[in-house]
């Protein structure tokens, strides 16, 4: 049986039996893959801590009949700051879920791996964790080809960056920004999207410097528009909501306590 070593981030884990877990790992070399961690649900297992979500591992895997088996794992980074903060934890969980949804198994995507990893590091010291998260969303979408059109009106192709023309809104259906004229004529749903929101989003999509990203703050006036536009854009591309967004939304509007009474419709449907 062939064995191989890889760096892997644990995206999610589900219990398999009383003692085993199935992990969804994202590896730098092989992309996403599922693997069994035998005995890892036992308290005394050496793997129990390493096989938790959000752990960055150096892992030894053995090829199995169906699923590969994690035979050894050493924690390289456990992101304790992310784990210790509810807001950061929710954002990191969302980041993992999004990557899981946007990738297929065994399709190497080293850029996506690096992006998620750097996002987790940035989250730990970000002034505005949402800036880090939206930059991640935008850059990950660009990697898989789902990025929204931002430089020009998605309908009439006229340039929106130079500032001669104002954005009139964001069309999730068309997947991009509309100019004022097109927004007025559009028959599909158009979300409010200001010039400030547009510039902020373009800045985030192109920000590759982790230090600068950690210091970036989304202007308060543009926050809601960016959240809504990206959410709607992603939902249409993925054909359903990412499950952890309901939490994130509640957290952003400072209504975590209201989660108790808020009906979680999007989830009930799944």
């Amino acid at each position: 049986m062939a064995v191989y070593k890889t760096n892997a981030l644990v995206l999610r884990r589900i219990p398999l039996s009383e003692t085993d877990k199935i992990l969804t790992l994202f590896t730098r070399e092989y992309g996403k893959l599922s693997a069994v961690a035998k005995g890892s649900r036992r308290t005394t297992s050496r793997l129990s801590g390493a096989t938790e979500p959000l752990m960055l591992l150096r892992a030894l895997l053995a090829e199995g009949m169906n699923l590969d088996v994690v035979t050894q794992a050493e924690i390289r980074e456990s992101f304790p700051l992310v784990r210790g903060d509810f807001g950061l934890f929710l954002r990191a969980t969302y980041a993992c879920e999004l990557l899981d949804r946007l990738t297929v198994e065994r399709d190497p995507a080293p850029e996506a791996f690096d992006l998620l990893l750097s996002t987790l590091y940035v989250l730990q010291r970000a002034v505005d964790p949402d800036a880090a998260l939206h930059a991640y969303e935008l850059q990950l979408m660009a990697q898989v080809g789902y990025e929204p059109r931002l430089d020009a009106c998605v309908r009439c192709e006229r340039d929106l960056i130079s500032g001669d023309l104002s954005p009139g809104g964001f069309s999730p259906t068309r997947g991009g920004v509309l100019c004022l004229d097109c927004a007025a004529q559009a028959r599909e749903e158009v979300l409010p999207f200001t010039l400030l929101a547009l510039h902020t989003v373009i800045g985030l999509a192109n920000q590759e410097d982790a230090r600068a990203l950690a210091a970036t703050e989304i202007p308060i006036e543009a926050r809601d528009a960016i959240n809504r536009a990206l959410r709607a854009h992603l939902r249409l591309r993925l054909e359903r909501d990412v499950k952890s967004t309901a939490f994130l939304d509640a957290l952003r509007i400072g209504a975590m306590d209201d989660l108790l009474s808020a009906p979680m419709d999007s989830q009930a449907r799944d």
């Binding site: 999610r12 969980t93 969302y94 499950k243 309901a246 108790l260 808020a262």
Partner: peptide, 15 residues
């Protein structure tokens, strides 16, 4: 709570 499984505070006896 399990954000990825969509289990929120409402499904638990938190209230």
């Amino acid at each position: 709570l399990a954000p990825m499984e969509g289990i929120g505070p409402d499904q638990l006896k938190i209230r």
